[in-house]
């Protein structure tokens, strides 16, 4: 929706604009991809954007596994939601950068960790191509229509705050990424009819029982923390965890973070209050 709001903003500011999501299996909190093009002439290309002028990263944990600067045009800029200063970003190459702690801003203004609207404010500030008024128009159009005016207003406030808080600088090179990250077999190599037993590939397991190849811990904003002294081993957290992130120990349970999406159910069902949720800062994200 933020990509759409950006397109509306660009349109409001007099540009020709087009936006579309990469239609995948979007779940709340899951990594997604969306594209916006805007320019002075009518836009005809309807493909994904492979060589962007700007890359907006809504979740800093993604830079651990994804070379977000792949394809960035010379002179382009990366805009990241992080607590770091822009000069402290280390990515695959040197590039102009802008940073803002959009998560804190979003939590403050919208009571949710949905940072996309805050990042629009950051985009406006960092690029100078879109006005804050355009961003507001985009948010009201896209979010106000689908949700409510009240929610849209809160998002506008978040965008404004992010606009003010965005800092500019230049990030450093040095981070190294694996060349390919996805199993892309040829038509001849692909299991016939996609009927797939458990199969090991250079990119991890696929087929039956392969979902653990997919670390969902990066989705998390808040993480559960166990106070072992308080745990009565009632196992309700183990029972309810939708992501199987809690194991049974001898006397108490154990929380694992590779797959924990931070839903907070373990803390909610814990009668002795042995589990609490706390905001996770970037350094602690496990890849």
């Amino acid at each position: 929706m933020a990509a759409q709001a950006l397109a509306v903003a660009a349109s409001h500011d007099g540009y020709s604009a087009i936006a579309f999501p990469f239609f995948g299996a979007e779940r709340r909190g899951a990594p997604v991809l969306a594209f916006t093009r805007f320019g002075e002439e009518r836009l005809r290309v309807r493909t994904q954007v492979y060589e962007p002028h700007f890359v907006v990263v809504l979740d800093e944990s993604l830079v651990e596994t994804v070379d977000v600067l792949a394809g960035l045009r010379p002179g382009g800029m990366v805009i990241v939601n992080t607590t770091r200063a822009p000069d402290r970003l280390v990515l695959s190459k040197k590039a102009k950068s802008a940073t803002v702690d959009a998560t804190t801003i979003a939590l403050k203004h919208t009571k949710q960790a949905a940072v996309n609207t805050a990042m629009l404010g950051a985009f406006a500030k960092a690029t100078g191509l879109i006005t804050l008024e355009g961003v507001e128009a985009g948010i009201m159009e896209v979010f106000g229509r689908r949700l409510s005016k009240e929610i849209a207003d809160r998002n506008v406030a978040a965008a404004r705050a992010a606009y003010e808080a965005t800092r500019l600088g230049e990030g450093d090179s040095g981070r190294v990424y694996a060349k390919a990250t996805k199993w892309l077999p040829t038509a001849q190599e692909l299991p016939p009819g996609l009927a797939t037993p458990p199969m090991e590939t250079p990119f991890g397991r696929v087929g039956v029982g392969s979902s653990p190849s997919n670390l969902t811990g990066g989705w998390r904003v808040n993480k559960p923390v166990l106070d072992g002294a308080e745990c009565t081993n009632c196992l309700l957290c183990w029972f309810y965890c939708p992501d199987g992130s809690i194991t049974r120990g001898e006397k108490i349970v154990e929380i694992h973070y590779e797959y924990c999406k931070g839903c907070g159910i373990c803390a909610a069902v814990c009668a002795p209050k042995a589990i609490h949720m706390e905001r996770e800062i970037e350094e602690e994200v496990k890849a």
Partner: peptide
């Protein structure tokens, strides 16, 4: 005894080969 996924949803990376 010999488990297999038969029928799946698939993203564009796989369907054209099928």
């Amino acid at each position: 005894q010999r488990p297999m996924v038969v029928g799946a949803a698939a993203p564009p990376e796989y369907i054209q080969e099928v």
